[in-house]
């Protein structure tokens, strides 16, 4: 692979998964909240754990998003210093 193509594929690999991870984190938070509400507490606490789970899921989604950014920021800075 030539240099440009290789960089293109690397960029896709670095950032292409952000969307899916974001959605997956929210889904898991929401699913956990619904499970707590409906199965563990038999619907007595509904809808509170659902909302709490959703909030945690969104927070986790942003955390994984920022993690990708921070990780690549370190690497980019290193690359700039090398130049």
């Amino acid at each position: 692979m030539s240099g440009v193509k290789k960089e293109f594929v690397q960029l896709l690999a670095n950032y292409g998964h952000i969307g899916f991870t974001f959605a997956a984190a929210i889904m898991i938070g929401l699913a956990g909240g619904i499970y707590l509400d409906q199965k563990v507490f038999d619907g007595r606490t509904a809808p509170w754990f659902t909302f709490i789970g959703l909030a945690f899921g969104i927070a986790a989604a942003y955390k994984s998003l920022l993690e990708v950014l921070w990780r690549n920021k370190d690497k980019d800075e290193k690359k700039d210093q090398d130049k």
């Binding site: 998964h17 899916f20 927070a59 986790a60 989604a61 955390k63």
Partner: peptide
């Protein structure tokens, strides 16, 4: 108390996103 659930959720999200993607 705030970060533990977030970390656990984002760890399980890896499982989901890696396979389903």
């Amino acid at each position: 108390p705030l970060l533990l659930p977030i970390e656990i959720i984002s760890n399980f999200a890896r499982l989901l996103s890696l396979s389903i993607r």
